[in-house]
Structure formats: C-alpha cells, structure tokens
C-alpha cells in the first residue's frame, strides 16, 4: 500500500503546472461547444451557467484537498495547486459572465439582484474574495508580501469556499442531496485543518 502511494506520489510531484493550465481550460470550451450544438438541452443558458459553476466548485474542493492529501497519504500536489486555484477563478469568472451576459442580460436588474437576493449576494461575495487570491497567485506577490502575510491573505480561500458551497445549496428550490454533499466536503476539508492546527499547538 505504502509502495503504491509512494509511486503515485512520485508521479504526482512531477506533473508540470503548464499541463494543468492547458488541460484545465479546455472543459470550458467543451461546455460552450455543447451549448451551441444542443448538447446542453433545450435551455442551454442555465445549463452552461450551472456546468461552469459546478466545475469551479469541484475544482475548489480539489484545491482544498491538497494539504490533507499530503498529510494523510504523502501525495503532494503542491506544485500544481496554484494552477488549480487559478482555474477555480477562471471557471467562477466564466460562470459569472454567463449569468451577466446570457442569463440576466438586463443591467438595471443585475445590481438589484446582487443586493436583494441572498444567494446571489453570497455567490458574489465569494467571487470578490477570489479576486485578491487570483491577483496574488504568482511568485512576485509572494516575495512582495512576504510568506507570512501572503499565507494570511490566502486564508480567504476558506471563506470563499464556504460561500461557494452555501451559494450552491441555496440555488436549488428544495433541500437537495448533491449540493449538501459538496458543502459537506468543503466543511470536512476545512475542519481537518482546524484539528491539525490544534494538534500542532498542543505538540
């Protein structure tokens, strides 16, 4: 078992970030192609919006899993974590753009929706938190801010993830299982960190 983990780990460590960027941007084009050719059903706007948002949320969960994965299995994806994080921003931005330009369309309504509709307020807040994270996801920013401040800033990730998960739960008309599972995963991945921190302090 450990041998297998070791081998997976050896491969995972060597995945070049560039490959993640290249492969990672492609699904968006696939969704767009499906939407243009009827592959997303008879209401492609909502479907495209949903696919992009969901894919962003799924990638977000992968990003949050990077630390626990290394801690528990030794498999390190740290080399590609930045790429995965920026892809989260890419998909959530596209999700927002589809909502703005294809779904709502009416500019006077958009601001009202952001203020009046809690699930949109929450989703939007999550997106806003992602902006400083995306902007500082480069070596220059780490140097400029210093590792400690940079890490503090990037704790915003946790808040953004919770907001995204809650937004997803609130979109549905009823309490549905699937969005609860995503939110549950996010909370579990964050709770694992709390425990280490405490263990870390005790040790």
């Amino acid at each position: 078992m450990n041998d297998i983990l070791y081998r997976i780990g050896a491969v995972a460590r060597h995945i070049p970030p560039l490959a993640i960027y290249i492969v990672g941007v492609l699904p968006a084009f696939w969704f767009l192609y499906l939407g243009l050719t009827g592959g997303l059903g008879v209401e492609p706007i909502k479907a495209l919006e949903h696919e992009l948002g969901l894919f962003g949320l799924q990638l977000f969960i992968v990003v949050l899993a990077v630390s626990p994965l290394r801690r528990h299995t030794g498999i390190s994806l740290f080399r590609i974590r930045r790429a995965l994080g920026l892809l989260v921003f890419y998909y959530i931005t596209l999700h927002l753009l589809v909502w703005l330009f294809l779904d709502v369309q009416i500019w006077s309504q958009i601001w009202g929706d952001i203020l009046k509709r809690p699930y949109i307020t929450i989703g939007m807040a999550g997106f806003v938190l992602l902006i400083p994270l995306a902007v500082t996801s480069n070596n220059w920013s780490v140097r400029k801010l210093g590792a400690r401040r940079w890490r503090t800033l990037h704790r915003l990730t946790y808040a953004a993830a919770i907001l995204g998960g809650v937004h997803h739960v609130m979109v549905a008309k009823t309490w549905q299982i699937e969005p609860m599972i995503y939110l549950g995963l996010i909370l579990v991945l964050l709770a694992l960190r709390l425990r280490w921190n405490r263990v870390g302090v005790a040790a």
């Binding site: 243009l36 008879v42 294809l102 009416i106 929706d113 509709r117 809690p118 949109i120």
Partner: peptide
Amino acid sequence: VDHPRWSQASERKIGGGLFARR
C-alpha cells in the same frame, strides 16, 4: 411581484438557444 430569489419581470422562452433574449 418578485420571487424572493429572482425577478419575475421577464422570462426566457425555451428554444431560443444560447443567445435567447429575455
């Protein structure tokens, strides 16, 4: 009268594709 989570002022007719107007 809006639905609390979205406006009811406009609608999109199914079948208009990816660029259907409200």
